[in-house]
Nucleic acid binder design. Structure first.
Lengths: 190, 190
DNA sequence: ATGATATTTAAATGATTATTCTAAAACAAT
DNA sequence: ATTGTTTTAGAATAATCATTTAAATATCAT
């Protein structure tokens, strides 16, 4: 039988994920990944095939352990539209040293010029879109726009907020904006 | 006296700008820039100092000849809030072969992790923010949110739309969303 | 036309890139 | 303990990167 793996798969993926979130796919070298994962290049290639393979694994890890968990924590079905507000506000809480960033946003921008987008970008956007649509559909009234249309707006707003955070835009201004938007939304649906 | 410059400064900046819009700063090599500008590497370094120098010049060119002209065309002061709607819809018209992209959005995302942002990112966001604030302030009523808050929302929406275009999101869906948003906005202010 | 000066070109440089290879070390079952 | 297999570690590779250098070329004022 073979030697057992020494490293902690979860820690490796988390380290790689953080690097990719901060600096994008092209901005992270194998050497960087060695530093952030603790693995040597040989082990990375042995375990993940190539840089893109590790990236895909890290992106899946992001969807499962960052995005999904964030939704579960802030905006579960029972929390309704108020949960969506909490989800949006949670985006503003970032580490002091630069923006960690959202892989969906960042990779859509980095690859969207001509390179084919990783499937995880679509998966991520669909997870968000479905969450928004579901929460809006649950409280729909005849005064409001269709849930799909409202969800598209929230999706754009969500991505835009992440861009503005990345650009260093004032967080209090963003929080006021989010609250005004959800105040208005809740006024319409009640 | 010296030899005169052979190349067309405007064409050079346009070529470099398009490359940077599509593939970001890190995604464009000097070789790419040679192909897209027609200049040889030596001339690029002679004229712009280094890659970052050409990038700065191309970004300034973008603000002046793409962003400002787009605002002038679609959303001059006289056009009011209806002009803003036209500005947003204009974002959806892109070339068939991949997304050209907005330098402000793309560079904010690419550099926002830890690298310092070029000043042009702030300039661009401020140009947009001021335009939105001004148009909203001109029609403000007591029913609406403060112009600064409404402008922050439009700014986030604007950036988010650009991300979603980059991600290949359905353009008709985005257009419906934009129209619903401005229908609601115009309903409030009249 | 000539001299002074800039621009252009192409080759050279050194750093960094992703990836592969090789040998050493670690483990599990026998 | 020995065997078989896998993970490691580090060196080696070949490509590409931004940048510099030096020579050739082109232009303008005289």
């Amino acid at each position: 039988m073979a030697r057992t793996r020494e490293y902690d798969q979860n820690a490796v993926l988390t380290g790689a994920m953080e690097a990719f979130r901060r600096r994008g796919f092209g901005g992270v070298s194998i050497k960087d990944l060695e530093a952030e994962t603790g693995l040597k290049a040989g082990s990375i290639y042995n375990s993940f095939g190539d840089k893109a393979g590790l990236f895909r694994a890290a992106f899946d890890h992001y969807l499962e352990h960052v995005l999904q968990e964030r939704i579960t924590e802030h905006a579960p079905e029972a929390a309704g539209v108020a949960g969506l507000r909490s989800l949006f506000v949670s985006l503003l809480h970032e580490p002091a040293d630069g923006s960690l960033g959202c892989l969906i946003t960042n990779i859509a921008v980095e690859f969207g010029g001509d390179a084919p987008l990783p499937n995880a970008v679509f998966s991520g956007l669909n997870i968000l879109s479905r969450t928004f649509t579901d929460r809006l559909a649950a409280v729909q009234t005849h005064h409001a726009v269709l849930p799909q249309v409202g969800a598209a707006k929230l999706l754009a707003l969500y991505q835009g907020i992440l861009v503005l955070i990345r650009a260093g835009w004032s967080k209090p201004a963003l929080e006021n904006m989010i609250n005004a938007e959800f105040d208005q939304l809740e006024r319409i649906i009640t």
